[in-house]
């Protein structure tokens, strides 16, 4: 009943394999301990993830966004939003993080739902929280916030306490009920 993957490839080995098979130049690499991050342009995303799934056995485990408005060390050329895709190979226990950036006025990214069905709700959550539109998503609507909510709460320019939406209800008194 026990399964152990004793020989877990190092991030460098993973990177070397990807470079060999997919070519290099279209992504940049950064890392921290065993986290290997590939920064991929949006137009290459679907192609790369499909190849990673079919040829390397990577599968999606996590997808989320971040807003870098005012983050230290970001130049004006870098993107405001970044979406990360954490991939996992269930056989070799390798992990890989893909990051792709998108900028403000009209943030649009390709959807990954055709590649992994599990991306469905995760992309809807990113849309709900950051307003990033996933092109080709089958059912892109708000998931956590109410339908009539107008802002995107996790953006850095939205205040923690909101803009008064939380107090916008009728008051029911003892006399009414």
């Amino acid at each position: 009943m026990t399964t152990t993957k004793s020989s877990r490839p190092t991030p460098d080995a993973t990177l070397a394999r990807i470079r060999k098979r997919c070519g290099e130049g279209f992504f940049s690499v950064s890392s921290h301990l065993d986290n290997l991050r590939l920064h991929v342009p949006p137009e290459k995303l679907v192609e790369l993830t499909t190849r990673l799934r079919d040829e390397f056995g990577f599968h999606l485990t996590e997808l989320g966004g971040a807003d870098y408005l005012g983050y230290p060390g970001r130049s004006s050329a870098s993107h405001r939003f970044e979406v990360h895709y954490v991939l996992l190979n269930y056989e070799t226990a390798e992990r890989l993080i893909l990051k792709t950036g998108v900028s403000d006025p009209d943030p649009v990214l390709p959807t990954l739902v055709p590649v992994w069905a599990g991306a469905d709700w995760l992309e809807r959550e990113v849309f709900d929280m950051y307003g990033i539109v996933f092109q080709g998503h089958p059912d892109l609507r708000r998931i956590l916030m109410p339908e009539d909510f107008r802002s995107f709460p996790l953006r850095k320019d939205y205040p923690l306490r909101g803009r008064g939406e939380r107090h916008n209800f009728e008051r029911v008194t003892r006399e009414d009920s």
């Binding site: 921290h32 301990l33 986290n35 485990t61 996590e62 989320g64 971040a66 990360h84 954490v86 992990r95 993080i97």
Partner: peptide, 16 residues
């Protein structure tokens, strides 16, 4: 930035 996960009771519980 970092992604780290542990095996939570109902699945992979990670933080980015």
């Amino acid at each position: 930035e970092v992604y780290a996960a542990v095996e939570g009771p109902s699945g992979e519980l990670g933080y980015y």
